[in-house]
Simulated scan of single mutants.
Amino acid sequence: TVRIVDPDEWRHGEAKGVCQSRSVQDLTPLVEVKDRSNRADLASTIIHEYAHAILHFDITDATERAKREVEAEAVAYVVGRYLGLDTSGSAFYLAAWQGDETDVLQERLGRISGTAEEILSTLDAV
């Protein structure tokens, strides 16, 4: 489920978006993004948070947080480029990959590629 939240109702501080469970009874991910006039940036944030819902929803290991952010942002970058969105804001996140081992990078790239394909095929079907 994706909700675009009015800035006056936003309860997540400086974050542009969040992915969380809806309730204890219903563990379906809920993506919330703070509404803004820049629709391309809004779309990129939705894609980023939706990637978290697909890739990381059941992961609770806090030590992996930075790497999960990189994966979600890389998916947003790939999908955003495909859709013709300005993806220049992704550079900060993606720079965090510097120093990762080759086998770790290949594993992450496989997840990123598969998730981007899943989102794009869903969008193409609409």
Rank of each mutant, 00 (worst) to 15 (best):
E9A: 13
F57R: 04
E69K: 01
D100K: 14
E101H: 15
L120V: 04
L105E: 06
Y50W: 06
D61H: 03
L85K: 03
T122M: 10
I46C: 03
E101S: 11
H12A: 02
Q98L: 15
W97P: 11
K16L: 13
D26L: 09
E49I: 03
T45C: 09
I54A: 04
Y82H: 10
R81A: 10
A66N: 15
Q25A: 14
G17Q: 08
V31T: 06
S21C: 15
L30K: 02
L85Y: 05
S88K: 04
S88L: 00
D41I: 03
A74G: 12
D100Q: 12
V79T: 07
W10M: 08
G13F: 03
D103F: 13
S88Y: 01
I59W: 14
W97R: 11
G89H: 09
D35N: 12
Y77E: 11
L123C: 10
W97L: 15
K16N: 14
G110F: 05
W10L: 10
D100W: 15
E71Q: 12
D41F: 08
T115P: 01
R3V: 02
G114S: 01
A66S: 13
S121G: 07
I59D: 13
Q106H: 14
R3D: 03
T28M: 11
I119H: 00
I119L: 03
D6C: 00
E9I: 00
H52G: 01
D6V: 01
A96D: 14
E69A: 01
V5N: 06
F92D: 15
I46N: 02
S90M: 15
A95D: 09
H12T: 09
V75D: 02
G84N: 08
V79F: 04
D61Q: 07
S90F: 11
H56D: 10
V78F: 09
V104H: 12
E101P: 07
Q98E: 13
R39N: 04
R39Q: 10
S121C: 09
R11A: 10
S37M: 15
H56L: 05
S21L: 13
R22I: 15
V33M: 10
T45Y: 01
R108M: 08
Y77R: 06
K34P: 05
H48N: 09
R68F: 01
S121P: 06
R39S: 07
D61V: 11
